[in-house]
Design a protein around this nucleic acid. Structure first.
Length: 113
DNA sequence: ATGATGATTGGGG
DNA sequence: CCCCAATCATCAT
């Protein structure tokens, strides 16, 4: 059983960066990592997966580098991911062919370096 | 401390 | 499509 209540310093940094993604736009696991000084996009996914502040911390606005949706609510495919797409669409994010976020929706957050 | 596990990524076949 | 190595916070031993 994971300690779902414990928020690590790393998670705080990731959530703080995630909060800067405006409505109707999305960023990527990789860019979020750059904004926080972490070279592992997977580690970012780990933190977002344990996000207890959704949707206040908009973890649904983070997608893969190739602009495909990526995971949501602990799943990499299926109904949860489908809802992620719907939430984004409701916020005004446009989608191109085969569930790819439109390029114009991407936002690269400012970070260190 | 050591090993396994991911909401990843870029590269290769 | 599939497989692999690199990456690193977390979790289980």
């Amino acid at each position: 059983m994971p300690q779902t209540t414990r928020i690590t310093p790393f998670q705080q940094r990731v959530y703080a960066a995630c909060r800067r993604i405006p409505r109707g736009r999305v960023s990527t696991y990789r860019w979020l990592g750059e904004a926080v000084g972490c070279k592992s996009a997977r580690a970012i996914g780990q933190a977002l997966k344990r996000n207890p502040f959704a949707p206040e911390v908009p973890c649904h606005r983070v997608v893969r580098s190739d602009r495909s949706l990526g995971g949501f609510s602990g799943q990499t495919s299926g109904g949860e991911v489908r809802r992620k797409r719907e939430m984004l669409r409701a916020e005004g994010v446009r989608f191109g062919p085969n569930d790819r976020v439109e390029e114009s929706a991407l936002i690269r957050l400012a970070g260190p370096q």
